[in-house]
Design a protein around this nucleic acid. Sequence first.
DNA 1: TATATTAGTTCTACAATTTAGAATATAATG
DNA 2: CATTATATTCTAAATTGTAGAACTAATATA
Lengths: 108, 108
Amino acid sequence: MKETRLGEFEEVLLLLVGILGEDAYAFKIAEEFESQTQRAVSIGAVHSTLNRLSEKGFLTSEMGSSSPERGGRRKRIYTITAIGRRVLEEARDFKVSLWQQYPGFANG
Amino acid sequence: MKETRLGEFEEVLLLLVGILGEDAYAFKIAEEFESQTQRAVSIGAVHSTLNRLSEKGFLTSEMGSSSPERGGRRKRIYTITAIGRRVLEEARDFKVSLWQQYPGFANG
DNA sequence: TATATTAGTTCTACAATTTAGAATATAATG
DNA sequence: CATTATATTCTAAATTGTAGAACTAATATA
């Protein structure tokens, strides 16, 4: 198995999938990313990252069977796997631990 | 000026520079990285990242004037700039905010 | 039932970050 | 001054990050 490294953008997208729950499909994720970061992102960037995350085993996905409001293709809904969640937690804990060692930030 | 994005490895290295203070030179940073992550890293990886971080204005550096124990080239000591520190804090705050929105992690 | 409209994914390509390791430089010591 | 130890600098390649065009499918409406 490959190393389970997590890039910056990958980490944020993984977190967004967790936050969005049932609504975790590419378009919505891109929207949410933009509203939370004030930073533009292309839909292609989101899709290819979501694919990579799936290949690594951090996400699963399935086509939504529902009927959209106006029309359009069916959504692909993403879900975090147990491994994905663990990797996310490890990344968080590691950063927290580093911040605690940073002089002047120990109790802030 | 380019966008001030911070990659995953860049962020960790920046934090390590802050933690190491006077001892923040490439070799030591690499050692510290390995001991904190249980993950091997090449010295070249550290050097090129430190350079990039400097070009972005997140780090400054100067040659140490001291004499080492046995021999060897003089160290290049790195220091975080005010911008570097701000970028680091922003990255941290953003992640914290995302975790707070993640159902099941709000108070943990 | 053909066509326009809307919503969404897939594909292709390129830029930036991350990674490794060889080459080189410098200082102390015998 | 040759050898050894300590570091940096350089070169190159793999992985991530990014953009946008092409494509697909469902619905509405004429």
